[in-house]
């Protein structure tokens, strides 16, 4: 536990010093929120709904930070540490790979959490966005989205051959998920055929789940996506730990 906390503190400091994630996981979602806030204000989402457009899209902005950390930050930092032989230095110490991965994993959970809190505060104060569902179901759906997305990233970082291939895989996962999952462009405005294709992204399902939970809509028809996301989280983190390579 002492080891875990000391490593977490150190790695978090290094990560913040790097600034990339502060920009892409915390500032960027806030910028998107503010732009949408000025465009839509407190307008309802569509004719006849009692929730506002911003309330409907807040979950998508949470997903921007989850995607940035999980599909860019996490795989790249693990791959970079391997390539720079930082992991090799850890290999000749008593640390277990699981703890090392857990530290890096938790850093990106923290980024996503800070982003979530910032988004809720700003949107709540400026445009009266408030939770219409229960905290438990919203927090649960957020956590599930975080776990499934981050574990995909951890697996990529764990098994990619080098930084270059990790960044190619990260781009292939990150940009389509960021643009088409509904994180930046609203899912609702896309043509039906595109909607069908992008439903396979776990992030898309996560956003839809978070949205329903936030708006207090029924989440009953999400049983299958929830099970799939859980399975993805378990399988990917299992693979990441099992096939972890120091070098």
């Amino acid at each position: 536990m002492k080891t875990f906390c000391a490593l977490l503190k150190n790695e978090l400091k290094l990560n913040i010093r790097n600034m990339n994630m502060v920009i892409f996981a915390i500032i960027l979602p806030l910028v998107v929120l503010v732009i949408l806030g000025f465009l839509y204000g407190t307008n309802p989402a569509a004719g006849g709904t009692d929730y506002t457009f911003l309330e409907q899209s807040i979950s998508a902005q949470c997903a921007i930070s989850i995607c940035a950390g999980g599909l860019m930050g996490l795989p790249l930092v693990v791959a970079e540490y391997r390539e720079r032989k930082v992991l090799k230095r850890f290999q000749v110490t008593p640390i277990s790979p699981g703890i090392l991965l857990a530290v890096e994993f938790l850093i990106y959970v923290l980024y996503a959490l800070v982003s979530l809190i910032a988004l809720l505060l700003v949107s709540g104060l400026a445009w009266d966005v408030h939770l219409r569902g229960t905290w438990v179901s919203f927090a649960g759906s957020w956590l599930l989205t975080v776990l499934s997305t981050l574990s995909i990233g951890m697996m990529v970082g764990g098994i990619a051959k080098n930084t270059k291939s990790a960044s190619v895989i990260a781009c292939v996962l990150y940009f389509p998920m960021l643009i088409f999952s509904g994180a930046t462009l609203p899912f609702e405005v896309m043509p039906e055929i595109v909607q069908k294709v992008i439903r396979v992204f776990p992030v898309t399902q996560g956003i839809q789940l978070m949205k329903s939970a936030f708006l207090g809509l029924s989440v009953e028809h999400f049983t299958l996506p929830i099970l799939v996301m859980l399975a993805v989280a378990l399988a990917c983190s299992g693979i990441a730990v099992k096939y972890f390579k120091w070098e």
Partner: peptide, 29 residues
């Protein structure tokens, strides 16, 4: 490796790390 110290020929560290942080990070293991 609780009882063994190693210095490799190719030295390796996180890009932005300070001396004190590298030492702390090693000691905590």
């Amino acid at each position: 490796f609780q009882k063994v110290g190693v210095q490799f020929q190719e030295c390796d560290y996180q890009p932005e790390i300070k001396v004190s942080e590298l030492c702390e990070e090693t000691a905590c293991l």
